[in-house]
C-alpha cells in the first residue's frame, strides 16, 4: 500500500484509472450481454455445429453461405430462431418449387434438426426467440377481447372466422384452422412472407394470448346449423342456393310440366 500511496499523485495515475474503468465497464457489459443468448436458448455448441451442417446442405443455395441472402432468397441475419422454427417446422422451408408463396407441407426435418437449424441462425445475429410454453399459454385469456383484436388486426387477410383468403398476384393468407399456438405466436412476431409483424410493443404478449385463445375457440367451434360451407358467409351460401336449390326448383317445374302418361 505504501507503493500506491507514494505514487497517487503521479500524472500517469489518471490514465491508469481511466483504463481500469474502461476495462471494468466493457468487460462487465460483455458478461451481461453474453448472459442473454446463453440463457435464452441453452444451446450447446454442438447443436450450433449440427445446425450449420444442415444449413449448408439444405438452405445455403438460396440464402447464401453465410445467410447473407442471394437473388433467390432473403438474408436470414436477424430473423431469429422463431422465424426458422415457423418456416421449417411447418414445411414452408425448404421450398419444393419456386412460386408466388411457400406452401405448408410435411417438414423434411425432425424436431431436433429444426432446433439445430434455429440455434445456428440465431447464433449469427440476434432476433426473436422461439416463444416458450408459458408465452403461448392462453389459459384464462379473454376470448371475446381476442375476437375484437383478431377482427381489428388479423381478419382483413385471414377472414373473420380464420378461414384465410386471397392476396395479390397469386399470394394468399393461409387458413388458421390447423395452426398451433406456437405457430400463431411465431407468425405474429416474425411476419412470415407477406404478413406484417405485430410486435410486442404494439400488441403485447397478453393480447397475443387473447388472439390465440380466440383462434383456438374458432378451431373447436361446432356448426349448430349443420353444413358450414367453409364458414365463408354469403359467398358459398349464395353459391349453394344458386346451384342446389335452383336445381331442385327447376326439377320441380319440369315435373309439373310433363304430361302424365
Amino acid at each position: 500500500m505504501k507503493f500506491l500511496a507514494a505514487r497517487r499523485r503521479n500524472p500517469l495515475v489518471a490514465l491508469g484509472l481511466l483504463f481500469a474503468a474502461l476495462v471494468a465497464v466493457g468487460g462487465g457489459y460483455a458478461v451481461i450481454a453474453n448472459v442473454q443468448p446463453a440463457q435464452a436458448s441453452l444451446v450447446s455448441q454442438t447443436q450450433v455445429e449440427e445446425g450449420k451442417k444442415l444449413y449448408l446442405a439444405g438452405c445455403s443455395s438460396c440464402h447464401g453461405m453465410d445467410a447473407q441472402g442471394s437473388a433467390n432468397g432473403p438474408t436470414l441475419l436477424g430473423v431469429g430462431a422463431a422465424a426458422v422454427d415457423f418456416q421449417v417446422s411447418t414445411g414452408r422451408m425448404p421450398m419444393a418449387a419456386p412460386g408466388a408463396q411457400a406452401v405448408a407441407k410435411a417438414s423434411v426435418y425432425n424436431e431436433e434438426q429444426v432446433a439445430a437449424l434455429a440455434a445456428y441462425v440465431a447464433s449469427l445475429a440476434p432476433g426473436p426467440a422461439i416463444p416458450t410454453a408459458e408465452d403461448v399459454s392462453f389459459e384464462g385469456a379473454n376470448v371475446a377481447e381476442g375476437g375484437v383484436l383478431f377482427r381489428t388486426n388479423c381478419a382483413q387477410c385471414h377472414q373473420a372466422a380464420g378461414q384465410g383468403g386471397a392476396l395479390t398476384q397469386g399470394k394468399w393468407a393461409p387458413n388458421l384452422m390447423k395452426a398451433t399456438p406456437t405457430e400463431i405466436y411465431e407468425a405474429m412476431i416474425t411476419g412470415p412472407q407477406s404478413m406484417p409483424i405485430f410486435s410486442d410493443g404494439t400488441l403485447p404478449k397478453e393480447n397475443k394470448q387473447q388472439i390465440i385463445a380466440y383462434i383456438n375457440n374458432l378451431q373447436n367451434a361446432s356448426s349448430p346449423g349443420g353444413l358450414d360451407l367453409g364458414r365463408l358467409g354469403p359467398v358459398t351460401e349464395g353459391l349453394f342456393l344458386w346451384t342446389a336449390v335452383f336445381a331442385a326448383l327447376i326439377g320441380a317445374a319440369i315435373w309439373i310440366g310433363i304430361k302424365a302418361r
Partner: peptide, 20 residues
Amino acid sequence: VAETGQKIRPEDLPVGGLVS
C-alpha cells in the same frame, strides 16, 4: 393502437410491422 388505446413509440414498430 386501435382497440387497446396504447400510445406508440417508434421503437415499438419494427420494419415490416403494421398497426391499426
